[in-house]
Amino acid sequence: MNNMSATITTTISTKAPAMNQPKISARGVQVHYGDKHALKDVSIEIHPRSVTAFIGPSGCGKSTFLRCLNRMNDTIDICRVAGHIAIDGEDIYDPKVDPVQLRAKVGMVFQKPNPFPKTIYENVAYGPRIHGLAAKKADLDDIVASALQRAGLWNEVKDRLHAPGTGLSGGQQQRLCIARAVAVSPEVILMDEPCSALDPIATAKVEELIHELRENFTIVIVTHSMQQAARVSQRTAMFHLGNLVEVDDTDKIFTNPDDQRTQDYIMGRFG
C-alpha cells in the first residue's frame, strides 16, 4: 500500500506543473482557535512564480490562513484546521504528510526579523544542515553564499560571515531571514508582514528583493500596507472578519473591486 502510493506520488511530482496550474489550492478552509471561528470557508488558488498579497483589516484571518499553508498552526495547541489545502495537487493535511518536510518546501519569513543568536553563516546554514542538503563543507559554503546573494545581502556581509546575525540592522536582519528561508530551496515562501518592523529604506530593499525572488519562487505575502500590495503583488486577496471577500489580479482589486467591502477598505473607510 505504501509502495503503491509512493509510486503514484512520484509520477505526479515528476510531471512538471504547468504554468497555469495553481501551485496552491485551498477549498473550504475553516480554522478555529478554541471557541473562536477565525477562518470561515476560505477557497483560493495561488499561482506559481508570482506574488500573491493578502490584505485586510487586523484580525481578519489573513495571517491565520498564511500559517495554514505550511502548517505552522500545528504548533498552537488550541488551533483546529478543517478543509482541504493542496500544494502541487498534494493535500498537505493528509495524515501521511510530515510537516517537517512540508516546511522545507514552503518556507516562511516572519513579521519581526528573528535571526538566531548565531553567526550570519550559521543562520543561513541552519536549514540546509538539518535537511541534509550539503554533503561537504564546501557545498554548504556554496549554498550559504548563493542564498545570501539571492537575498541581496552578500555584498554587505561577505566579510563578516562569522559575526553574530543579531548585530545586523533591522532591514539586514530581515533579509538574512529571507536568505535563511531561501537556503533550504523551498518552492513557496510565505511572508507575514515582513516589512512592518522596518524603516522605509529597508522596506524598499525588501520589496525589491521580493520582486526578484518571484522568478524562482511562489510568494505569498501578508501586508497591512495597500501600497505595498499594489507594488509587489500580481494577485491580491482581500480578507474580512474571517471571510475571503475576493481575490483577483492586483490591478483589478485596486481599480475596480467587485465587493463593496474591498472598495471601502482600499479607500481607507475602515482598517
Binding site: 506520488t9 498537505i92 501521511k96 542538503l133 518552492e187
Partner: peptide, 14 residues
C-alpha cells in the same frame, strides 16, 4: 543543483 533536487513529494517521507 538546488533546483534539481526539487521537487519532492511531501506525501512520501524520505
Amino acid at each position: 543543483r538546488g533546483k534539481v533536487s526539487q521537487p519532492k513529494s511531501i506525501l512520501a517521507i524520505d
